[in-house]
Amino acid sequence: MTTTIPVSGGAFRPYDVVVGRGLLSELGARIAPLAKGRTAVVTDETVAAIHGPAVLASLAAAGIKARLLTVPPGEGSKSFAELERVLDRLLAFELDRSDVVVALGGGVVGDLAGLAAALYMRGIDFVQVPTTLLAQVDSSVGGKTAIDTPRGKNLVGAFHQPRLVLADIDVLGTLPERQLKSGWAEVLKHGLICDAAFLDWLAGEGASGAKGDPAALERAVVRSVEIKSAIVGEDEKEAGRRALLNLGHTFGHAIEAELDFDETKLTHGEGVALGCALAFRFSAATGLCPPDAAARVEAVIAAAGLPVRLDQVGTFSADRLVKRMAGDKKAEGGRLTLILARDLGDAFTARDVDRAAVRDFLKSEGAA
């Protein structure tokens, strides 16, 4: 059984996100109407070893000529150097504008392959086949593609919507526990933004999803995609409501950058989880939301085995974190823009947040 969630908006061509089990074997049949000639499958070396043969077999069975293009695993592949390598290999494969790029992997692969597809011959179609929970519920939907620079995360990119997203729940069974929990942070984020009832389910019966229960994972992925698709359809380029999806990200990205995006120290999802806890505690400290809401957020995140305090991941300077936050792509004119909360399931965009207040708050949280 599969669930199809349509994603549509006035500014882009509609597409479907298909969630279910056993979808990897159906890839060839599902993209055959899109792939008129050849398909380049961009993936990382780890995913290629696990899922590459099945994907190539599915494409071959549908009569699609395909080639695997691999990159090293990890955030380091979201770079100018790897983007250039991928583009050069697409050219060597002689893809034309009627061909398709498949992004097979987690958020790093999806961002990199999507940006390559956006740039190649001024834009060719691509399909997202996310193999991590984080990618299934977040980065594969909505058309954000990007690479990192030494000055920050996701600062060079483009909006390029996929033609199709296939989220196969079965592939999540191959994830290490830490990667699964990392993705769970983005699931929790969706409840925190706008669906308190979903958050209640995630904190109760649905909590088994963080431990790999397939039925809970499937429900969590479907509801997360429903939330994100509705927001993206309303606001593709983050001019308004879509910014809410960045709850926890401004704090989280600053912390990641201070750790040099070293995923052995902090994964992206862990950064988001910590950022969500900080955003709610800052909201409570400034009188925007009830203290018990911030305490509940902290308890739910901690119960999932995710960090909620700065000292759990490292030692930080409040001034350096604020400087990183001011350089975030959501900032305007050096002013801080944060996603804060009035209550559980009630997030909002706060512009021109006082930098001194954020610095003092971070110091109260243990930053130097």
Results as ranks from 00 to 15, higher is better:
residue 151 R to I: 00
residue 169 I to A: 08
residue 123 G to Q: 08
residue 98 S to D: 13
residue 22 G to Q: 05
residue 288 L to C: 06
residue 90 L to T: 07
residue 225 V to R: 12
residue 354 D to C: 12
residue 307 P to Q: 02
residue 275 G to S: 09
residue 29 A to F: 01
residue 56 L to A: 14
residue 338 L to P: 13
residue 274 L to P: 00
residue 272 V to S: 11
residue 91 L to N: 07
residue 194 C to W: 09
residue 136 Q to C: 07
residue 24 L to W: 03
residue 68 L to E: 12
residue 110 G to I: 05
residue 6 P to R: 15
residue 281 R to W: 09
residue 262 D to S: 10
residue 5 I to V: 15
residue 143 G to R: 03
residue 357 A to Y: 04
residue 192 L to F: 14
residue 286 T to S: 15
residue 78 K to G: 12
residue 261 F to P: 02
residue 360 D to Q: 12
residue 315 T to Y: 02
residue 98 S to C: 08
residue 1 M to D: 13
residue 95 L to E: 08
residue 6 P to S: 14
residue 268 H to I: 06
residue 284 A to T: 09
residue 104 L to N: 04
residue 221 V to N: 06
residue 332 E to F: 11
residue 314 G to D: 05
residue 308 V to G: 10
residue 99 D to R: 05
residue 114 G to M: 09
residue 82 E to T: 13
residue 179 Q to M: 08
residue 157 G to W: 03
residue 216 A to P: 09
residue 33 P to G: 08
residue 258 E to V: 01
residue 137 V to A: 11
residue 243 A to C: 11
residue 203 A to C: 07
residue 156 V to D: 02
residue 283 S to W: 02
residue 318 A to K: 11
residue 223 R to M: 01
residue 234 E to R: 15
residue 247 L to N: 03
residue 205 E to W: 05
residue 313 V to T: 14
residue 12 F to W: 10
residue 82 E to S: 12
residue 213 D to W: 06
residue 103 A to R: 01
residue 219 R to C: 00
residue 3 T to C: 13
residue 249 H to K: 04
residue 174 T to Y: 05
residue 331 A to R: 11
residue 24 L to A: 03
residue 162 P to L: 11
residue 311 D to I: 07
residue 364 S to R: 15
residue 343 D to Q: 09
residue 172 L to E: 07
residue 366 G to L: 10
residue 96 D to W: 08
residue 165 V to H: 06
residue 22 G to H: 07
residue 340 L to V: 09
residue 12 F to D: 08
residue 162 P to H: 10
residue 298 E to L: 09
residue 298 E to V: 13
residue 332 E to A: 14
residue 75 E to G: 09
residue 224 S to T: 04
residue 311 D to N: 14
residue 219 R to F: 03
residue 29 A to G: 11
residue 237 K to Q: 15
residue 307 P to F: 04
residue 42 V to G: 08
residue 300 V to R: 10
residue 169 I to T: 12
residue 299 A to T: 14
residue 306 L to I: 09
residue 114 G to F: 07
residue 152 G to D: 07
residue 29 A to L: 05
residue 44 D to R: 12
